[in-house]
Design a protein around this nucleic acid. Sequence first.
DNA 1: CGTGGATTTGAATCACCTCAAAGGTCGTGG
DNA 2: CCACGACCTTTGAGGTGATTCAAATCCACG
Lengths: 251, 251
Amino acid sequence: MKTTAATPLRGAQPHCQTCSLNALCLPLSLSENDMERLDDIIRRGRPIQKGQLLFQQGEEFQSVFAVRTGALKTYTLASNGEEQITGFHLASELIGLSGYDAGAYPLTAKALETTTVCEIPLQQLDHLADELPDLRKQLMRTMGTEIRHDQNMMLLLSKKNAEERVASFLLDISQRYQRRGFSSTHFRLPMSRVDISNYLGLAVETISRVFTRFQKNELIETQGKEIILTDLDSLYELAGLARAHDKCFSE
Amino acid sequence: MKTTAATPLRGAQPHCQTCSLNALCLPLSLSENDMERLDDIIRRGRPIQKGQLLFQQGEEFQSVFAVRTGALKTYTLASNGEEQITGFHLASELIGLSGYDAGAYPLTAKALETTTVCEIPLQQLDHLADELPDLRKQLMRTMGTEIRHDQNMMLLLSKKNAEERVASFLLDISQRYQRRGFSSTHFRLPMSRVDISNYLGLAVETISRVFTRFQKNELIETQGKEIILTDLDSLYELAGLARAHDKCFSE
DNA sequence: CGTGGATTTGAATCACCTCAAAGGTCGTGG
DNA sequence: CCACGACCTTTGAGGTGATTCAAATCCACG
């Protein structure tokens, strides 16, 4: 399968300055002027269809990407061919930075649905990061956030049981939708059960069983990929998380 | 327990310029002049004793640290009090950057043995990163490396069985000693079996059993914390890793 | 409306965990 | 220098949560 970044877009070009996501995305905290300079180096490609790759592990690292619409998963391949999903990426999130010093992408990014991205060529971004302190800080913040996410996943994979993992996962997605202005209790999971099971280090069957158990206990309602969180408090307790009214720390 | 960073050192002050680790550490790729500017903001404290904390989860994030001698572990606390070790840190490695944007340390760092560190105040480092492009790049490289490490750990915790985990762990340590000019087959593990088990998401007893099994199969020899890797090839195969003669990619 | 993939459910198995107890090791103080 | 205690490591026996294997059901899409 061929990667499909940077195919020119025919329609109107959106810009960071007018993008509704700019308060969540890389331009966050950039001045009007700096944002324009960032906008200048960004390439907008045609949409990526479900199942297509944005980039592939081992390919030369040329660009990082910000998700504009849609969703992707990133995964690493073990030498035995098994894959481990390391993250799901919703609108405004930046992908690829972990390859920054590697020369090649250390993971593969695949679209979970039709997805549009902003491509940011590494060389120019790297150059701009030296000129715009706010951009540099934002890049480092993004990487710090990624590290903390991954370390929380290590904790999840190492110490939590199946129900705690699923609850943590649902709440993570819930919080991310909420930050984007969507409902924190009614949403559509863009990934399959298989993807969820892979991400959480469980068998698909276990995910399915936990979902049905959660429904029996009236913590959630599901209908295919649509999901309603009916008892947030219990889910938070199950996940072993503070309810984070004041967003004390991430997980 | 009180954290003990930045207590003034009485003896001779070492410098980056003369430090044998500067080719592995943060000054990597800095010019002589830039290295001096970095050196100027670094504080060297008195040694930290085994079991003491360098910093604690939740404390205000003020500095990152480079390990000069000794070793530390870093771990995060779940809300139920369980801890998950996220990394072991040997000489020349940088700790704390993951808190860059968090305001507070997202994890705790504890000395595994008597350890000396170089303290780098965040504010000054952050300032210097805007002036020295090479330093900025090195910081981002460090963070990228950390992300890839953590994602490899996710794969390990999610997909590998006990023997594969232990083999991967031993080889990781082996490679890190080798890069520092030590033997890749004869070394001393600075951490306890309990720490290893926690890091690898297994019970202590399982670690112990795998170690004895590896000895019976003549893959390793152990005597307390001393360890000899007698069959690197088999260990690499077990770990599901390429032998990496040409260091094709990390794990 | 049929087909292939995704999801759910059930039954049996297993890798690792827990519990229990017997060595070891190390630092401390007499 | 040796005895003591605390902690770490090893070994054994039994239990269990999640997996695997198998099969039914659902669903999206051409």
